[in-house]
């Protein structure tokens, strides 16, 4: 499968390059096992220095992969995330990203096309007008950030499992990979992609999805942490290899299920 990218309609290529640079992990973040007072206590207690070097970082990542498997096992495809009344919607719903508000991608909805690739029968791209004609589902669910805070939002769009069926997806494939306008990316497991509440979101609170929340398309997944809910989505690939993701590659847990 080719990953060579054609220019994406409606996306400023310069913005893409600028943000791709951010994909490189910052040096300061590489040494998250470095000394701290509690680590000193640990070293004394265990009589060995387990907190230094690549070995322990590697061990922690191995355990994180094990936690992925545990979470995939815990994930019940029939368990729905709790839904809330409109009165409980968090207003204003927070803008959240690793860049500031005015740096957020400004995608031209008129020329936008959702690119489709990988293990699907119909790889035709979709315009916003075409996507808006598909049956709409709605949810008011809690967005839980990896940082710990949460906010309740109202999202409308196409049920992703319906869309995947519509384009003839081979649902035996293991992953669905999303590419975003700013260079962000995300891979999710197929069982989560097929969960009834996983949504190809076109609206927030019954209005066209604002730029702040990911215009033109966000993938809303109430069974996963916020960073596994990509915004400004420009392409979707169904595949068997794990292409990772922006935060996952820097050490956040891959599955990050709720």
């Amino acid at each position: 499968m080719s990953r060579t990218r054609k220019p994406i309609p409606g996306v400023d290529p310069k913005l893409l390059i600028k943000d791709a640079a951010k994909l490189l992990p910052e040096p300061s973040r590489r040494f998250f096992l470095r000394g701290a007072a509690s680590l000193g206590a640990l070293a004394v207690l265990t009589g060995c220095d387990i907190v230094d070097g690549d070995t322990s970082e590697h061990a922690l990542r191995v355990i994180s992969r094990m936690n992925d498997r545990v979470q995939a096992w815990l994930f019940n495809p029939n368990t729905l995330a709790p839904e809330y009344p409109e009165s409980m919607i968090t207003r204003p719903f927070p803008f959240n990203a690793y860049y500031s508000r005015d740096e957020a991608p400004d995608v031209d909805g008129d020329t936008y096309q959702l690119e489709i690739g990988g293990l699907v029968d119909n790889k035709k791209s979709w315009t916003l007008a075409e996507l808006r004609q598909l049956p709409e589902v709605s949810q008011i669910t809690r967005h839980v950030c990896v940082e710990g805070w949460s906010a309740i939002g109202s999202w409308q769009g196409v049920r992703l499992s319906d869309f995947l069926k519509l384009i003839g997806t081979d649902t035996r494939a293991k992953y669905v990979w999303f590419q975003c306008a700013e260079g962000y990316s995300n891979t999710i497991d197929m069982p989560t992609a097929l969960h009834p509440q996983t949504q190809l979101t076109l609206k927030f609170d019954h209005q066209t999805l604002p730029r702040d929340y990911g215009f033109p398309i966000k993938i809303r997944i109430p069974t996963k942490l916020g960073f596994k809910n990509p915004k400004y989505v420009t392409a979707m690939w169904v595949q068997n290899n794990d292409a990772g993701g922006y935060w996952e590659n820097q050490g956040y847990n891959w599955f990050s299920g709720l």
Binding site: R29, F32, R34, A36, S38, L60, I63, W247
Partner: peptide
């Protein structure tokens, strides 16, 4: 006095 240096590192320690 905390462990992990940043959020991702701390989460890896916590969930291990």
């Amino acid at each position: 006095i905390a462990l992990g240096n940043w959020l991702a590192g701390a989460l890896l320690w916590h969930f291990a």
